[in-house]
Design a binder for these strands. Structure first.
Lengths: 349, 349
DNA sequence: GTGAAAGCGCTAACAA
DNA sequence: TTGTTAGCGCTTTCAC
């Protein structure tokens, strides 16, 4: 611990200070302050005396000592890849609020998108004896999560899940979302559709791609892997992949972006290439943010219910803590919704 | 603590388990594991033996016990009014990352904009013996912050500060920002300028209003309090105040919004009233978000350096922990920047 | 080179 | 109705 050398926390007054001030033993003081006066038939005088002394000394029971004694920390851990990303901060918020409601405090950690950091953080959190863990994994490795779970730690993974896993997971219905998106494009007559994808190897990306393929297959349209580009959820990546697709395949009439930033990048590329949306190019993206309504061309999106992802995760860890067992149902899919706006139009005939 | 009744944390293997497995005493095991083998001249054999045993048992030293013994928790607290707000989550992120870098873990708490909740949370965090505290106060009361500081807790307040306070504070240069905004509008010939303000009584709002008044005064333009409306930083509030101002004072040619959501609300109101931006109405707002570039009319903004607010706060608490003293300089102003885009135009002549 | 013992602040069995 | 005692898991004197 690099924090080693620093100055120690100023000592507060302790329970025994209070006891001394009130002229009673530590146990009596403890009982009086914890509302056990009834149960132990402590005299009203004593109780009041103790409480007054505590008040006067500004006594705050040390949660550290309490945790050690009770073997319960009242701590819940959250790990996200990037707290500055509204998607993750919304999840973090819901979990934090739920935790506070349940009398827990939330330790929040930012893995910065690195699996290595994620491992370290999860280790640290276990050392701190968090009583449960909500993690939005970077999404490429899961053994450390499984490990923590096997040690008996209630854990739920959110968003970037793992297929066929014993982990408790909650994520949006990416498959259905991608199908919804593609169906809308097909209904509007589009046949050559480009896909701007996110981080490959993560379940959201893979499932969405599967949705694309299945919808095309059902419509009897061959899937052209040439029309898929990109490897990140960022604006930059969206821009470059869009430019690439639009120049190598000028017959494209629509673009399906896997994230809002990807779509913004696509907008930029389109405007540089002199393509108007939706007249020359339809655009549709996964994820919905408040701002898209105010865009030049309001974006049609597949909206995830982000707060619900967080709430469900919180509910699942809470239940595990209460029952002591992981839920029977492992994979929790949260429905998505098509938000139809102006960026998708009929294919130019 | 409502969390009382739940199941206790599964016990991990402890130091004495490791010691037993290695056939040494707890003290030796502790020293070997903490890299004090040199200092205590522990034999290499013993050291390796201990480390192997620890490894084999999956030993993770209990931070709880450690904290109690060392009187140091390695915990830092962060309190924000709304983690779902990108402004605060960006700050939280910077502080969290800085904390992790310094070997600390961050406990994050969401006050939901309630002073009462804020008080409770700060109490809880002190009971948990956080070693320092970064808080984005709701902004209307500060005594509990001053109190925590006087107990010797390194504390810095971010954003919603208090004038003439002994608190260590970091906030944007709201006054300069508002002046920048007003100057731009004046340069473009605007004389009747409406102001959509945020939560009254908070320093950001008050300072920005002051900036408005001073700039007008300097230009010899009378300040008309009728042209100020609003009481929140939300889209709703912006919409209603904008409608109100634009209908009661149809001679307005520009609107200065104190937040991005306020500005979005104003956009909605303007479009409903058939006012085009910037031809009929110029619009300018405080705060810059990535999205404004993609708006129908890209917004001219006063950009706060939000990450820097967080980083500076983190630096200030860290220094306080190291030196044990609050910094001499109390108020830290972070510069703002004018981002000129399309939403401000010449006044129609 | 290593161990025994004390103690961080609290709670809970047991005793009175 | 209250006090004594032990112990949560760890570090650190002090002793050998």
């Amino acid at each position: 611990m690099p924090a080693q050398k620093l100055k120690k926390t100023r000592a507060n007054s302790t329970l025994s200070d209070v006891a001394k001030a009130a002229g009673v033993s530590a146990s009596t003081a403890s009982r009086a302050l914890n509302g056990l006066a009834q149960k132990y038939r402590i005299s009203e005088t004593t109780e009041r005396l103790v409480k007054e002394s505590a008040e006067r000394l500004g006594f705050r029971p040390s949660q550290v000592a309490r945790s050690l004694r009770l073997q319960r920390t009242g701590l819940l851990g959250i790990v996200v890849p990037d707290l500055a990303n509204p998607f993750f901060s919304a999840i973090a918020r819901e979990v934090t609020v739920a935790a506070e409601l349940g009398g827990f405090s939330a330790i929040l950690a930012d893995s910065g998108g690195s699996v290595k950091k994620e491992r370290e953080l999860i280790d640290q959190l276990q050392a701190r004896h968090v009583e449960s863990l909500v993690v939005c994994p970077v999404g490429l490795e899961f053994d450390h999560l499984a490990g923590a779970m096997q040690r008996g730690l209630p854990l739920v993974a959110v968003d970037r899940c793992q297929a066929n896993s014993s982990l408790v997971q909650v994520t949006s219905d990416h498959l259905a979302g991608a199908k919804l998106a593609m169906q809308l494009l097909l209904e509007n007559g589009h046949r050559r559709i480009g896909v701007l994808q996110g981080l490959p190897g993560t379940l959201p990306t893979e499932l969405r791609r599967q949705g694309v393929r299945e919808t095309l297959a059902q419509a009897g349209i061959p899937f052209d892997p040439q029309l898929v580009a990109g490897d990140q959820f960022s604006e930059q990546a969206g821009y470059h992949s869009a430019r690439e697709l639009l120049t190598t395949s000028p017959d494209l009439t629509a673009l399906f972006a896997m994230s809002t930033p990807n779509a913004f990048g696509a907008c930029r590329a389109a405007s540089e290439l002199g393509l108007r949306i939706p007249q020359d190019l339809s655009l549709l993206c996964f994820d919905d943010v408040a701002f898209v309504e105010f865009m030049k061309v309001p974006l049609t999106t597949i909206a995830q219910d982000v707060p619900e992802l967080g709430r469900r995760a919180a509910k699942l860890v809470t239940e595990q803590m209460q029952t002591g067992n992981p839920p029977r149902k492992k994979m929790h899919k949260i429905p998505v919704k098509l938000m139809s706006r102006a960026s998708v139009g009929k294919v130019p005939s």
